[in-house]
Amino acid sequence: MPMSAQEIENMIRAAIPDAQVDITDLRGDGDHYAARVVSESFRGLNRVQQQRAVYAALDGRMGGVLHALQLTTAVPN
């Protein structure tokens, strides 16, 4: 069963409470999403480390329940 955008957002916010999260369903199928995650906790981390933090928040669902996630991370301006 696919994940909803709200489920993805909730999981990210639970792990990264200060995150600003924007989720877009790319195909309308609940299986291909884009996410933009902005968090102060990313400051000082390189892009790979930031993305690993988001994937860790998804608790192993990437590649299974959640097929594809186009991920953009950033620190606040």
Rank of each mutant, 00 (worst) to 15 (best):
P2L: 03
P2W: 06
P2Y: 03
M3V: 11
Q6L: 07
Q6C: 10
E7N: 01
I8T: 00
N10C: 00
N10I: 00
M11K: 09
M11I: 06
M11E: 07
I12V: 10
R13S: 00
A14D: 12
A15Y: 05
A15Q: 13
A15V: 10
A15T: 13
I16E: 00
P17K: 02
P17M: 04
A19D: 00
Q20K: 00
D22T: 10
D22G: 06
D22M: 07
D22Q: 07
I23N: 01
I23K: 05
D25W: 09
D25A: 03
L26F: 11
L26P: 07
R27G: 09
R27P: 07
R27H: 07
G28F: 06
G30W: 05
G30P: 12
D31T: 15
H32C: 14
H32K: 09
H32P: 15
H32L: 06
Y33N: 09
Y33A: 15
Y33G: 14
A34R: 14
A34F: 15
A34Q: 13
A34D: 04
A35T: 12
V37K: 03
V37A: 06
V37Q: 05
V37N: 13
V37E: 11
V37W: 07
V38N: 05
E40N: 10
E40C: 14
E40R: 12
E40H: 11
S41Y: 08
S41E: 06
F42P: 08
F42L: 02
R43W: 09
R43H: 07
G44C: 08
G44F: 10
L45R: 14
N46T: 13
N46M: 13
N46P: 15
N46L: 14
R47K: 09
V48G: 09
Q49Y: 08
Q50Y: 03
Q50S: 01
Q50P: 03
Q51S: 04
R52N: 01
R52L: 05
A53G: 04
A53P: 03
V54S: 01
V54Q: 01
V54F: 12
Y55K: 10
A56K: 15
A56G: 08
A56H: 15
A57S: 14
D59Y: 14
D59F: 13
G60A: 04
G60Y: 04
M62Q: 05
M62I: 12
G64F: 12
G64Y: 07
G64S: 09
V65I: 05
V65E: 06
L66G: 03
H67P: 11
A68F: 12
A68S: 13
L69H: 10
L69P: 13
Q70E: 07
L71P: 14
L71R: 09
T73E: 02
A74E: 14
A74G: 15
V75I: 09
P76S: 11
P76W: 09
N77T: 14
N77A: 15
N77D: 14
